[in-house]
Design a binder for these strands. Sequence first.
RNA 1: GGCUCCGUAGUUCAAUGGAUAGAACAAAAGUUUCCUAAACUUUAGAUACAGGUUCGAUUCCUGUCGGGGCUACCA
Length: 634
Amino acid sequence: MESQIKKYLIENAVEVFGQQIESSLIQFQKTRKDVEGDLTLVLFPFVKILKKSPQEVGNHVSAILSAKFPEISKSIVVNGFLNIVLSPEFWVKALNQMNSEEKFGYQPENSGNTVMVEYSSPNTNKPLHLGHLRNNFLGYSVAEILKANGNKVIKTQVINDRGIHICKSMLAWERFSPLNARGERETPQNTGMKGDKLVGKYYVEFDKQFISEAKSFIQKWEKGDFSGVSEEVKSEFLRLSAAKEGKDEKAVKGLDDKIKDLAKNQTSILRDAKEMLIKWEARDPETYLLWTTMNGWVYEGFESTYKAMGVDFDKLYYESDTYLLGKDIVVEGLEKGIFYQKEDGSVWIDLTNEGLDEKLVLRSDGTAVYMTQDIGTAVDRFKDYPDLNGIIYTVGNEQDYHFKVLFLILKKMGYAWADNCMHLSYGMVDLPTGKMKSREGTVVDADDLMAEVVDKATEMTKERGHLDGMTEQEKEHLYALIGMGGLKYYLLKVDPKKRMMFNPEESIELNGNTGPFIQYAHARIQSLLSKSGVKDFNSKINVRTIGHEEQELIKQLEEFPSVISEAADTMSPALIANYTFELVKLYNSFYQSVYILNETDEDVRYMRLVLSRNVAKVIRLGMVLLGIQVPDRM
RNA sequence: GGCUCCGUAGUUCAAUGGAUAGAACAAAAGUUUCCUAAACUUUAGAUACAGGUUCGAUUCCUGUCGGGGCUACCA
């Protein structure tokens, strides 16, 4: 309706306004709740053109529209706004229309572009945590939203499986794992530990040993004992120590960090890890086997976590596969003069003209850095999928700068698709106790958290659920569905760009703006429908009038398609979440105030059932986009 | 220091430059002879500060104050 009126006004602008007008001048908005009307046209933009008062403009436009559109039963001018009231017939027709569409609000499949969505870029040394949950749920949801808008979507992740950090956990496992009775080191099989947790444990172990060795160096140096270190290190230490004199707290901390780095570089354990990396890059069979084995453990662990999360991927990329391609591209860029080489052999790009800094793309020893790999991965992807239109990178906002640089480099390298690469930058998740820090053990583990919310859901559902006649398996499924629904909804309902506070207690709440609140509404409607005895909802509704609350509900349902498309444009699942919450509140209020099954007028009863059915449908279609399932009973 | 993002009820979040700034939680008071009360209905409460642009500013611009992030030959 809105678009029809808009179209009409633009096409007949000369007649209505006496001149052609920009389409941006036609602004519609939702009518305020406390004012009569279904649709509101903002009149201010026309006031200047017509040089009349808002009231006169309103009357003028109102008369024209009323004559043209029979759906408009009346229109009222208030304070510069034209509030349009649509007829009951219009709303009944709208309800009949949406009732006939199974996928109401979705665009036809493959009617849009081909887009790759990358989310979850885990480090194989660290088990997944709360931050990954936001990342995964967000990426998955955006992928689903894009699909609903007709795009073909390829879900992917890039696995960070090479580099010095990987060697650290490998080394620590070889060196520190206790042997069991059969003389074996710890494995997921013989300990029953999840693979990613086991590897993570040895990564932490490495860090402990590493830091303690570095500390002992510093203690020695402070006593003036420089045995076994080079003159350069000695003088650097003395220089840094002397510089601390008379500096403020912050500066001293910075210098201390530099001293720590200096000491870390002297440790034997780091040296051994570096040697291992060189062996790995040389494909030393023993090292390679160890790497493959331990990575296998991690992937198995991740797999089970992803399964619990309910996310999946169409294609995986491994940095161990793409870093070499990245290096080739750097060489190519060097020949083209896009990059330049310093005396020590390191390769850089100068972005000072773009307001950024110089950025390293290859180390002096010829090894790849993060940026090198990312360049390689991007190019690789467009090679794998020739019809790909763009990539969306779901990565935290602490990497805004990295992606700015990455896209700029790709553009300078002449890749036309660089303009279609986007960084879906999401905010950090904070805890009430402050930031998550692995050092301080304040990281919320993904597996633990998911288990906790499901436990809580189990407890609450047993207490008040309606589970008679369900099998144990069905019950387990329901508990998981409610627990995970709550968690996903909690993480997705806020604007992804913003940092958010994660309150563990609130995340398992069942009341208010929560997943279970929405799931409950769906279950209640399903129960209603099955009790109604109506099997076939295909016949048309036949009522002349329609109640205020019913009309408000249809109005809200009518907005679903534009919400989906806006969610895709802004890549914000939060819009879907908030929309659905509004819908459910309206429905609950409606449900409370009228009889449905006990309504005596058959036509009205049927209309209310159809309305309920469509509310349930839109709830389900909306929640699917968030990766949340809705139950028929709870 | 440079770059960048953000400051909205007690708390967590909303608000394409539009009408009297919406919700939820927490607080207070109510609603079950009826379709799932995990529901519904009331009440109280906020735009960090100072300017500017505009018919109109939470939104845009400038400055102040406060917070986060980036500023590695780590990934």
